[in-house]
Design a protein around this nucleic acid. Structure first.
Length: 557
RNA sequence: UGACCCAUGGUGUAACGGUAGCACUACAGAUUUUGGUUCUGUCUGUUAAGGUUCGAAUCCUUAUGGGUCAACCA
């Protein structure tokens, strides 16, 4: 009997299993609560996979909840992109699509609860200015002092809060504060603001409200309303947890529990929404979905699969210590997935013409090549072959280093799926650059029926000149030159931009089968890497994005 | 000079008082009509010092290092 290898639990799963065991909950409900003020990035993907993954594992459910309590920073564009990204990421997961909720769905309920809070003497309207409040808040090492408005009567607070809601007060006139403890060692417990006046149009509620609850206050209430059992967020909210618990306790709500885990950091990239926005607004990249961006939409456009992202999230694990994941792991995950799925195609990115002098002019024959050696059911395709072909410039060297086993002067080279060729002559231009190669093909060496007896070490891809399709190809490199672009307090991440993060190849030659490809299709260019068809493609021009190179263990001696 | 959180190979993550394991990376080899894939092997680790214990990565103390917290942001 096979030994069952049980995957160890992360600390959140341990908490959940414990809660289930002691009967605290019969089932679990999690939520993914993005603020619609930017596009989702791979750090969010980690969180999405965690929350949806937990629900899947324990038979619970997950809500997608837009945390839209600040209308001045949020936009419907972001709501739409987030919904699309989440949908795409979890599309093949065997579970139901979550309920789509908005914190703004609960504005009335939150308001009603707040009236209760005031009645309990646990909140007061403060007319201090923002500056005064900052001063009286104290510092982390020094207790704060009570506001002069702290002891207003319940009746007065009720009336003032009503006035705040009525719309008669301009922004900033006053705020509603929770009455907790100005001397708390936790700054978030020093009478935090829970409501502020904002005469702003909200993308969901329009002009219904001119007061909006703060995150720290709205979040636990929203969780409780949805019966969220485990409210998972990142580490920086750890110090907010006492306020989260305070809110639930004093409002006597469903006991949602906040649990914090370490956010994802990736080498050679930045993850802050603010900084990503800066890249977009300053034109460093071409939008949120630029394939160099660590956004979900950028990765999707780059050619990443949802399965690869989920596998990545799975491999990096969940813990509380700060981490920085090698971007190589992400690349490993997409290679692993695409190796199984992507059809192989021959494309020459940096062409060198080869004329087979002993091949009949004007003749085109077809050779049969497997679509994917990793997939037994992948089938084969016909690829045209003729007298003139493109090969990769790097596949020929006049003075090869030791260990180079491609084409060399007077050497042999196998054209994948076709014939062995023998180098005869190198044609150069006046500057001494290599213009073209004259070779002879070995007629008896055809793939599958080779009787030539010639042993070649080198095998390469090629494209028949007469039937070649052309395309544009975009080669991406990492956006930053250092592992931790925002790790330096002295310098800005903008100082570490890689000037060569994008290289456009106007014309590459590809075998004609690519004409059937559609936008977002992914293929492997043999010996190059994985490529995805970009949305910029037109009926007459294909555009490929390089997702990732193939692993390359060849290095000259 | 406050409170809270964290500390295991290069990176990430296990071991729940009883043999420090797995993955990625790197390196070496085998196979290969992709210098891909696959397979095999190798290197590298418990922050430090005390204590508890027959036994400590694990529990306790202190130190050190890292992170977080003073928006009418989330």
């Amino acid at each position: 009997m096979a030994e069952l290898v049980e995957k160890s639990l992360n600390f959140i799963e341990e908490i959940i299993e414990h809660d289930l065991e002691i009967g605290k909950h019969k089932t679990i409900i999690t939520r993914f609560p993005p603020e619609p003020n930017g596009y989702l990035h791979i750090g969010h993907a980690k969180s999405i996979c965690l929350n949806f993954g937990l629900a899947l594992k324990y038979g619970g459910k997950t809500n997608l909840r837009f945390d839209d309590t600040n209308p001045t920073k949020e936009d419907i564009e972001y709501v739409d992109s987030i919904r699309e990204d989440v949908k795409w990421l979890i599309e093949e997961m065997p579970m139901e699509w979550s309920e789509e909720r908005y914190a703004s769905d609960y504005f009335q309920t939150i308001y009603d609860l707040t009236v209760k809070l005031i009645q309990k003497g646990l909140a007061y309207v403060d007319h201090s200015t923002a500056e005064q409040m900052a001063v009286s808040k104290g510092t982390p090492t020094q207790a704060g002092t009570n506001s002069p408005y702290r002891d207003r009567s319940v009746e007065e607070n009720l009336a003032l809060f009503e006035q705040m809601k009525s719309g008669s007060l301009p922004d900033g006139t006053c705020v509603l504060r929770a009455k907790i403890d100005m001397a708390s060692p936790n700054m978030h417990m020093r009478d935090p603001v829970i409501y502020r006046i904002k005469h702003a149009h909200h993308h969901q509620t329009g002009d219904d409200w001119c007061i909006y609850p703060m995150y720290d206050y709205a979040h636990p209430i929203s969780d409780a309303i949805e019966n969220i059992t485990h409210s998972i967020c990142t580490l920086e909210f750890e110090v907010h947890r006492p306020l989260y618990d305070w809110t639930i306790k004093n409002l006597e709500l469903f006991p949602s529990r906040q649990i914090e885990f370490a956010r994802l950091n990736l080498t050679y990239t930045i993850m802050s929404k603010r900084k990503l926005l800066q890249l977009v607004t300053e034109g460093v990249v071409n939008g949120w979905d630029d394939p160099r961006m660590p956004t979900i939409s950028g990765l999707r456009r780059r050619g990443y699969t949802p399965a690869a992202l989920r596998e990545f999230a799975n491999r990096i694990g969940i813990a509380k210590r700060d981490n920085i994941i090698d971007v190589g792991l992400l690349e490993f995950c997409v290679r692993e997935d695409l190796n199984k799925k992507a059809q192989r195609v021959m494309a020459v990115l940096n062409p060198l013409k080869v004329v087979l002098t002993n091949y009949t002019e004007g003749v085109t024959e077809t050779v049969e090549i497997e679509n994917n050696p990793e997939d037994p059911n992948g089938g084969k395709r016909l690829v045209p072959f003729g007298r003139e072909i493109w090969i990769e410039r790097e596949d020929f060297m006049e003075n090869p280093p030791k260990g180079y086993h491609r084409l060399t002067p007077d050497g042999y080279f196998r054209l994948k799926g076709a014939y062995i060729i023998k180098h005869v002559e190198t044609i150069k231009n006046t500057e001494g650059g290599i213009e073209e190669l004259r070779c002879e093909y070995i007629p008896t060496s055809k793939s599958g029926q080779d009787q030539s007896g010639i042993k070649v070490k080198g095998v390469g891809h090629w494209v028949n000149v007469a039937t070649a399709a052309t395309a544009e190809c975009r080669i991406y490199d990492r956006l930053f030159t250092v592992e931790a672009p925002d790790g330096d307090k002295e310098k800005s991440f903008m100082d570490y931009l890689n000037p060569n993060s994008l290289t456009v190849l106007d014309t590459i030659y590809v075998e004609p089968s690519v004409k059937d490809l559609a936008v977002n299709d992914r293929v492997q260019f043999l010996r190059h890497g994985y490529f995805a068809v970009d949305k910029d493609s037109t009926d007459t021009k294909l555009v490929f994005n390089r997702t990732v190179t193939l692993k390359d263990s060849w290095k000259p001696a």
